[in-house]
């Protein structure tokens, strides 16, 4: 007795062209996403570095305003990196305990003799950081503080 096999009906499928088109689209999408991801990762890295630099600069300025005797070495909250990738450095410009008179009247000010600002110390805290290898950017924070006898 002959066994009877069911009739073979070919199941429908995508054509090769359809698959190729779909794969191309997916490949393009993945490529674009990868590129965007790379860009975003770089941006995230820059953001992190800048965030760190801002905090670092603010800390420096605040510490300078608190005016410990020895600045900046022992009082820094973190040491800057100096490698080529995450380069960061800082400096204080000269602490101006100005002895010359900023004469408001002579400089066109009114009759207000007050706020003779030369009685305060001032500095500019600059933190140099590296958004990308080979490039640098500066953050400048000007800061004032009272002279020693008035702190």
């Amino acid at each position: 007795m002959k066994s009877r096999r069911p009739a073979c009906t070919p199941s429908p499928a995508y054509t090769l062209v359809e698959i190729l088109v779909a794969m191309s689209i997916v490949a393009l999408a993945i490529g674009a996403a990868s590129q965007l991801s790379l860009t975003q990762s770089v941006a995230e890295d820059v953001t992190q570095k800048k965030s760190f630099a801002v905090n670092y600069a603010e800390n420096l300025a605040r510490i300078w305003q608190l005016a410990p005797r020895d600045l900046p070495g022992a009082y820094l909250l973190a040491q800057p990196n100096s490698d080529a990738v995450s380069f960061m450095s800082h400096y204080f410009d000269s602490n101006l305990s100005t002895s010359t008179v900023d004469n408001p009247a002579a400089l066109g000010g009114g009759g207000d003799y007050g706020f003779d600002a030369y009685t305060v110390d001032r500095t500019n805290v600059r933190v140099t950081w590296s958004p990308a290898p080979g490039t640098t950017s500066n953050i400048d924070f000007p800061a004032l503080r009272l002279q020693p006898a008035r702190r």
Binding site: A43, E44, V46, T47, K50, S51, V54, N55, A57, E58, A61, R62, Q65, G114, F115, A117, T119, V120, I139, F141, P142, A143, L144, R145, L146, R150
Partner: peptide
Amino acid sequence: RAGVSDLEEHQARKRLAAANSEIMVRDY
């Protein structure tokens, strides 16, 4: 997040400026 870093810088500048203002006020 990238925008936050700008905001952080703004806030830091403002805090320092306020501290500078206080110094001026006290000195005066």
